[in-house]
């Protein structure tokens, strides 16, 4: 590891994000992600298949109840394709957020004994969720073929942008909750509830155009996942996201990211004392 010739620990040291230092520890991102993926699928018969199976079963259930029974419109694409594409992005958020929020407490033993930039832990939790995404993405391609769903070539940049928005939006909220969870263990119980509420407030199962009250759209747009899902679906449905809603959603994601990471950085020095 290339360390500077002189390292200083100062009680009045500034606490801003030290990207240089984080870069020196870059291999730990890989190792934490690698460890979590290994552990997640160890001693399971189906292994990595779980990453596909879980969203697949959800899709089947939602298609039956919301697509077939309630006949929710799905912007001219088959409902299974519509809901599955939304679920994939949503799972980055729900899995990533849950893991990130609990990550500091789960790794308390390590935090108390070894120093490294703490942000590596929640970031790696989100990388694990991205791994699940990649596995399930293969199935999405299969669905496209099965339903003969045409994809616009703009997917080449909309999909990566959607992934970036989803990951950073998740990181913002995840880092914030992770830091709060170290101090107040209540958040352990708040998180599943929060994820569930947000699921219904995010247009995974339904298009926003369906919402009866215009004000409700703005509430929905406050979640950064609105932008991620709409951007991801754009090349599939051909329906462009509503501009002002998109801006609100991106802005809220950005604010969450800055706020969450800053709160994390300001409290991380005391994690070892509290965990």
């Amino acid at each position: 590891m290339q360390l500077p010739a002189e390292q200083i620990i100062d009680s009045t040291r500034n606490r801003w994000l030290d990207l240089k230092e984080t870069w020196r520890y870059r291999e730990l991102f890989y190792f934490f992600t690698w460890r979590d993926i290994k552990i997640k699928y160890k001693q399971t018969v189906l292994g990595f298949l779980w990453a596909i199976l879980q969203p697949l079963l959800m899709m089947a259930i939602f298609t039956f109840f919301f697509g077939k029974t309630l006949k929710i419109p799905s912007q001219e694409v088959p409902y299974p394709v519509y809901v599955f594409s939304g679920l994939l992005i949503w799972n980055i958020f729900s899995v990533g957020l849950t893991n990130a929020a609990n990550s500091m407490v789960n790794n308390a033993l390590i935090i108390k004994k070894i120093y490294f930039p703490r942000l590596i832990i929640p970031v790696s939790s989100i990388l694990v969720a991205l791994f699940d995404f990649v596995m399930a993405f293969i199935l999405l391609i299969a669905l496209f073929i099965y339903y003969q769903q045409p994809i616009q070539w703009t997917a080449a940049w909309y999909w990566p942008i959607a992934l970036v928005v989803a990951s950073f939006g998740t990181l913002g909220l995840g880092a914030w909750l992770a830091a709060l969870n170290v101090k107040y263990r209540d958040f352990r119980y708040v998180i599943p509830f929060l994820v569930q509420v947000l699921f219904f407030l995010t247009p995974v199962l339904y298009p926003v155009s369906m919402l009866p009250h215009p004000l409700l759209k703005y509430v929905v747009a406050c979640s950064p996942m609105y932008a991620a899902i709409e951007l991801f679906r754009f090349p599939i449905t051909g329906v462009a996201p509503v501009a002002d809603l998109l801006v609100i959603s991106l802005a809220s994601g950005f604010i969450l990211l800055i706020g969450g990471v800053l709160y994390f950085k300001f409290t991380e020095d005391f994690f070892a004392d509290l965990a």
Partner: peptide
């Protein structure tokens, strides 16, 4: 010294790579 927790007062200068072994088999 191992930067696990932050001092309330004072300053430490280290001129080299530091590794701490506060426990064997961490992680």
């Amino acid at each position: 010294l191992s930067r696990i927790t932050r001092p309330t007062t004072g300053k430490i200068v280290m001129r080299g790579r530091i590794a701490s072994l506060l426990e064997v088999g961490t992680g």
